[in-house]
């Protein structure tokens, strides 16, 4: 027997919660981005686990697409952070109050 799927799902839930707390607590935009990556990885782990439990390769294909979208998201997001940093001279989310209408 291999490891029961519920163990992987519990671990994924824990990792997702760590990501949620991190994105709510931290003020540095870069670290908030890393917490998004944590949450994406928790979701990926869940997808792979269900792909095994249901014997369906579609879950793994979805993980593949999530990886691609994560890469694109990081590229654009870091571009946004760089251009914000040029104007505000910091990567703290609190300093972006000029976005307020």
């Amino acid at each position: 027997m291999s490891i029961p799927g519920s163990w992987y799902l519990t671990l994924a839930a824990l990792l997702f919660s760590i990501g949620v707390v991190g994105i709510l607590v931290r003020r540095n935009v870069l670290i908030m981005f890393m917490c998004i990556e944590l949450m994406l990885n928790a979701a990926n782990l869940t997808l792979v686990t269900y792909a095994r439990m249901l014997n369906d390769i579609g879950g793994q294909v979805l993980v593949f697409f999530v990886l691609v979208v994560a890469a694109a998201e990081v590229v654009v997001g870091l571009g946004v952070i760089v251009s914000i940093f040029r104007r505000a001279k910091s990567t703290t989310a609190d300093d972006l109050h000029i976005l307020k209408g």
Partner: peptide
């Protein structure tokens, strides 16, 4: 490592 344990070696 979790992926490897679940036979998702490519991922």
């Amino acid at each position: 490592v979790m992926f490897l344990l679940q036979d998702a070696s490519f991922l």
